[in-house]
């Protein structure tokens, strides 16, 4: 489904190389020390960073030169996933049509997504009147309505408490199964990875290692991961 083919990013003494394939419907944790290039990797896939060489292929299409908005990719950033001046409903509807002119069938899609994440009572409210968990639900509902194949999570739940985080991860897992998405999930916490990801990718010292089974990885971590854990 997603292929990174001989990707090299080498700017200002920072180097990252990646070469791997992810199968359809896989859920992959990205693990590694800070500054190793986890976010850069996501940024290359989502199109905010252009690689120096190599290609990004999604669903048999070379998207290396596509702008972020043209890719069938949804990213949940660490923060800034919502526009505070727009309502819950508008924030989600942006994922359907950025100019917010929805047809009646699109409105049905929107309402279904709001209901799916349990925000029906809050659709006319502004995000900052909602709790952290509810705000995360807004961005997940947007991922639901978008026409996308790939969901990238760049630690969006790091500000939530453990119980709430676990609940959100459950919702992420359900949504990616329902929509048949490939999930890439940057995390510091092995437990998070074990909860929702069957595969894991280790990023360390400028290299992205090929995906391996998550359970096995943590049962028998390689040297490079041991130091970090």
């Amino acid at each position: 489904m997603l292929t990174l083919s001989s990707i090299v990013y080498d700017v200002n003494k920072f180097r990252l190389g990646a070469d791997f394939r992810l199968p359809k419907s896989s859920r992959v944790a990205i693990i590694g020390p800070s500054g190793a290039g986890k976010s850069t990797l996501l940024s290359i896939i989502s199109g905010f960073t252009k690689p120096c060489s190599g290609r990004v292929i999604l669903d048999n299409k070379d998207i290396t030169l596509f702008a972020p908005g043209q890719r069938k990719v949804t990213t949940l950033f660490q923060d800034g996933n919502l526009f505070p001046h727009l309502t819950v409903e508008q924030n989600i509807a942006l994922g359907i049509r950025p100019d917010l002119r929805l047809s009646s069938s699109q409105i049905l899609l929107l309402e279904a997504a709001i209901k799916r994440v349990g925000l029906s009572d809050f659709s006319k409210r502004k995000p900052n009147t909602l709790s952290g968990g509810q705000q995360s639900r807004i961005s997940l509902a947007r991922a639901l309505v978008r026409d996308c194949l790939l969901l990238l999570l760049d630690e969006p739940f790091s500000a939530l408490g453990p119980a709430l985080k676990s609940e959100m991860l459950g919702l992420v897992k359900d949504i990616s199964i329902e929509k048949d998405l490939v999930l890439l999930f940057v995390t510091h916490d092995p437990e998070d990875a074990k909860q929702i990801c069957d595969l894991s990718v280790v990023v360390a010292e400028g290299n992205v290692y090929p995906p391996v089974c998550t359970t096995e990885l943590f049962l028998n971590p390689p040297e490079i991961l041991k130091a970090y854990l």
Partner: peptide
């Protein structure tokens, strides 16, 4: 970034 990823231009 968010606006870019949502094709808001």
């Amino acid at each position: 970034r968010l606006a870019d990823s949502l094709r808001m231009s």
